[in-house]
């Protein structure tokens, strides 16, 4: 009997939770705010679903109810992607070591 592909996806999911668990515990507490903003940005990879939805219209009618929701989701996810990564970059650029003047 063949294994349902769902089982494979479930395996990836469960293993990723474990990876997430160990990776996040190793994040230094002083970087917890950038951690939140970067997780925000990467969870917006949901944009791939939004793009598929946005492109679902045919050449005569690009806009149907389904694709309009797709386009809206693209805009929302794009705010998050650009906003999330850039604000993380901005924060991380501020973390500096002691100047060597002693």
């Amino acid at each position: 009997m063949e294994i349902d592909p769902l089982i494979f996806r479930l395996s990836i999911f469960i293993l990723s939770i474990f990876i997430g668990y160990y990776v996040v515990w190793s994040v230094t507490p002083s970087l917890h705010t950038p951690l939140m903003s970067v997780t925000n940005a990467i969870s917006s990879v949901i944009i791939v679903g939004a793009i598929i939805a946005g492109l679902s219209g045919n050449s005569e009618s690009i806009f149907n109810t389904s694709s309009i929701f797709g386009f809206l989701a693209i805009a929302l996810a794009a705010i998050n992607i650009f906003g999330g990564f850039l604000v993380t970059q901005r924060m991380l650029a501020m973390y500096k070591k002691k100047r060597k003047n002693k």
């Binding site: 990836i12 999911f13 990723s16 939770i17 990876i19 997430g20 997780t39 990467i42 969870s43 990879v45």
Partner: peptide, 8 residues
């Protein structure tokens, strides 16, 4: 999306 969702 599955990996990211689990991580986040």
């Amino acid at each position: 999306l599955i990996i990211t969702g689990a991580l986040v």
